[in-house]
């Protein structure tokens, strides 16, 4: 296929994904325990609650409950899939997910500490974010101490530090009050968007915009960073510097996502694969599509999570249930490559 034809096909896929995302976005605004009709939803959406003298129930549901949650789902899906795709490229490993360097377990420890200290939701999010970043810093220190620039050393350091954090998390769960705190920690570990509000969104929005924007701008470089170190260096890349920027941005995105919604698995693993499958594995085209598909996937999952049952199903359960067969399907499609 000529590359201009490829380019046209790619633009078609992007526009198609964007249209589906918008449709699910609007559908998600209607769906929920209070089912809103299309005109009611539209009426409420086009009249911001802050300007209304007497807000209707629909306005309250849309502006105070559903919209922040839906925006959160889109942002977190966007961030997790971009960071998963970036990690998979620079570590030349298709099975890598955003928590490779221990950011997720580290964030879980931070959140658990805040829960044990009876912190409010903001304190939990701040602790999760900071602990996630500290964990990745510890992981990055190991290769620096060993004076090794090998990817494998970094991955092994991630496994070791992640394992240490899992042990600490186990200890914190052991110490937690089984009647209240333990439930909170487990619920947070399973991931949920129920507590997302405008405040948390605004606090993390700069991270999503800046780190996500940098990764998108570096998408061609991600192709180059997939080369062996000698080849990449000979091609003219400042390998250490550029790899560090990518790891930093991917970690910030994951930490921000985990901080506001807990640990949500699978998104960062399967969405990059789907995007690459649709774009001939080229990061230059795959990364923007990854962002859109990640937003679409998590929005769909979250909408199902809050509509399928009277209670709310934790996201980690749904992404796992849907992700596993989906991933097997992708592996089957790529069997020639394995």
């Amino acid at each position: 296929m000529d590359y201009r034809t490829q380019q046209r096909k790619y633009h078609g896929i992007m526009i198609g994904t964007l249209v589906v995302l918008i449709m699910i976005f609007l559908g998600a605004l209607c769906a929920g325990r209070l089912l809103l009709s299309w005109p009611d939803m539209w009426q409420a959406l086009t009249h911001p609650i802050w300007l209304a003298k007497a807000p209707t129930t629909a306005m309250t549901v849309i502006w105070q409950l559903r919209l922040p949650r839906i925006l959160g789902a889109c942002l977190i899906g966007f961030g997790l899939s971009l960071s998963g795709g970036a990690y998979q490229s620079i570590f030349q490993n298709p099975l890598v997910s955003p928590d490779l360097l221990g950011v997720t377990t580290g964030a879980s420890v931070g959140a658990a500490v805040a829960i044990l200290a009876h912190g409010n939701i903001i304190a939990i999010e701040i602790c999760a974010f900071v602990a996630g970043i500290i964990t990745v810093s510890l992981t990055m220190m190991v290769p620096a101490l060993l004076k090794s620039s090998n990817n494998l050393t970094l991955v092994l350091a991630g496994i070791v530090v992640g394992g240490f954090m899992t042990a600490i998390l186990g200890l914190l769960k052991y110490l937690a009050d089984p009647e209240s705190q333990l439930q909170d920690i487990v619920y947070w570990q399973l991931g949920s968007l129920a507590k997302v509000n405008y405040q948390t969104l605004l606090a993390t929005l700069p991270v999503f915009i800046i780190a996500g924007g940098i990764l998108l701008a570096l998408r061609f470089r991600l192709n180059v960073l997939s080369l062996s170190p000698t080849e990449a260096l000979a091609t003219g890349v400042n390998l250490k510097f550029e790899r560090m920027i990518v790891i930093l941005c991917a970690t910030l995105l994951t930490a921000a996502a985990v901080a506001i919604a807990g640990t949500i698995g699978w998104v960062g693993l399967i969405i990059p694969h789907i995007a690459k499958l649709l774009t001939q594995q080229n990061n230059q085209r795959a990364l923007p599509l990854m962002g859109l598909l990640g937003a679409l996937f998590l929005l769909l999952i979250d909408t199902l999570a809050r509509t399928l049952s009277p209670g709310e199903i934790p996201l980690g359960i749904l992404t796992g249930l849907l992700g596993t067969p989906f991933f097997i399907g992708i592996l089957f499609k790529q069997r020639g490559r394995l």
């Binding site: 470089r221 192709n223 997939s226 080369l227 000698t230 080849e231 091609t235 001939q280 594995q281 230059q284």
Partner: peptide
């Protein structure tokens, strides 16, 4: 030892890496 055999790119995409 090049990574060309391990990369999932097309020849065109691989060649373009030379423009870095």
């Amino acid at each position: 030892m090049t990574s060309i055999g391990a990369l999932p790119y097309t020849v065109l995409d691989y060649l373009l890496l030379g423009k870095t």
